[in-house]
Design a protein around this nucleic acid. Structure first.
Lengths: 245, 245
DNA sequence: CGAGTACTTGAAAGATCTCAAATTAGGTGG
DNA sequence: CCACCTAATTTGAGATCTTTCAAGTACTCG
């Protein structure tokens, strides 16, 4: 399974006409490369462009004043990032490449134009954004009053899930490509403590590690350890009428 | 200043024609009362309606399996809530009234119809949703690696800010109307610890309390205590063209 | 006035962080 | 291809923050 494109993501929640499909494709024509570890956009930069990830893996984070940072989400091919420029004309998150990546820069005017021309697509974008918001809300719930081991287990499960959906990984084995420090920034833990939790999960026969490769041995057990499991509802806009009724 | 209506909120970010204004008003015609402490919607309920808060104060939370809950946001008049039904056909958050409230139930088909008829309004709703997502992301950042006192200080500042904007409070004094347990659920702390942090803030001459009323004595100091301050960008869609160009 | 809920305070237990140092892995230039 | 250099991982011990448990006080509503 190849990495899903933006059109695929939108098409998955809403049947698209050929015209709509073409308009969407046109949106992601341009391409900009971002090297691993490089920052694409800095928080609070004034900007009117957003991005669609074409290949690779990126992350969105906010920097705390004490030098710490909170990773808000990991981004996979076909997903939008930096969409806050739409509403704010300014970036609200720092975007960093986790691995070498390619993004399609999109002017917010293009998005607006598209949404005005094809209102159904506008709604589809809203729905995708909402899905992202829901995911972040879930993460907030998971981070705040959950023990460390559960948080780490949850990130692993979520990463594998997303990597599967993006065709980057298959089966129970995957390569997060994150340092333990980064896992810590995503879970609100110290790198040192992340290390201990990974060890615990390994000793509990829930996962195995070789180099950078993780294998989930006991998925049921890992889910139990993660406590909060994704109730896995899917975004679906197929109920949308063709046109205003 | 009276409580802003939904039309006011949308109108604040985008100039509206009379037609658009009328269509928006029509959306919130119905009204349903929710008594303090009552649950309007339960997480995971199948449903195709969302709500606009007309008066009162509500909150959106997710329940954790250990009986704990995470409060994701507090909702004030003119704001939408339960919007996940749009994309999922199912509630993703539990909605509870903090004080006696009145909501306008809206069928998702109505929203879709509106957005298809008036694409600019569709974009405005997207922008409002995005603002909410940004706020939750900020909260995530603030909760995960921040000391308890800073979290409590931050909630107080945010509550005052929102209550001001909604005309519920003015000046430096306001009545959160939340139990310390609820503040704890919002910050990821125990009620006991919230109590101690409030005491600390009081002893540090940053706030004062009388009954349920809070007064911010030293705003600068409280902001410093809260560490992460809202960079306060405003949502603005005035750049939107009238129609697709 | 009584009962329940919220608030307050103390003391001890537990989780996570910090600091420090050793080991391993990865990448680069010779 | 090796040697080196830096970044990442691993492990231990003590410090710190937050929770838990317990008990007493204040408030509010019938």
């Amino acid at each position: 399974m190849p990495a899903p494109s933006f059109v695929d993501r939108v098409g998955a929640i809403l049947p698209l006409s050929d015209t709509e499909r073409a308009a969407l494709s046109k949106l992601t024509e341009r391409e900009r490369l971002v090297r691993r570890g490089t920052t694409l956009v800095n928080e609070n930069d004034r900007s009117t462009e957003l991005f669609v990830l074409k290949t690779g893996m990126m992350m969105a984070c906010v920097l705390l004043d004490d030098g710490n940072r909170q990773i808000l989400r990991f981004v996979f091919p076909g997903e939008m990032l930096g969409t806050a420029t739409l509403a704010y004309g300014q970036a609200r998150q720092t975007l960093v490449a986790v691995s070498d990546s390619a993004v399609a820069p999109v002017e917010r005017a293009q998005i607006a134009d598209l949404a005005l021309r094809y209102p159904r697509i506008g709604l589809a974008l809203t729905a995708l954004e909402q899905a992202e918001a829901t995911r972040i809300a879930e993460r907030l719930a998971g981070v705040s009053k959950t023990p460390a081991q559960a948080r780490v287990a949850a990130v692993l499960l979520e990463l594998r899930e997303q990597m599967r959906r993006s065709g980057v990984a298959s089966g129970d084995s995957f390569i997060p490509g994150l340092t333990q420090e980064e896992i810590g920034d995503a879970t609100g833990l110290t790198a040192v403590h992340v290390n201990r939790m990974l060890r615990q999960l390994e000793e509990g026969q829930l996962i195995r590690r070789n180099g950078g490769r993780f294998t989930i041995i006991d998925e049921r057990g890992l889910r139990r350890a993660a406590a909060r499991t994704d109730h896995g509802a899917a975004v679906d806009l197929s109920w949308l009428p063709e046109r205003a009724g």
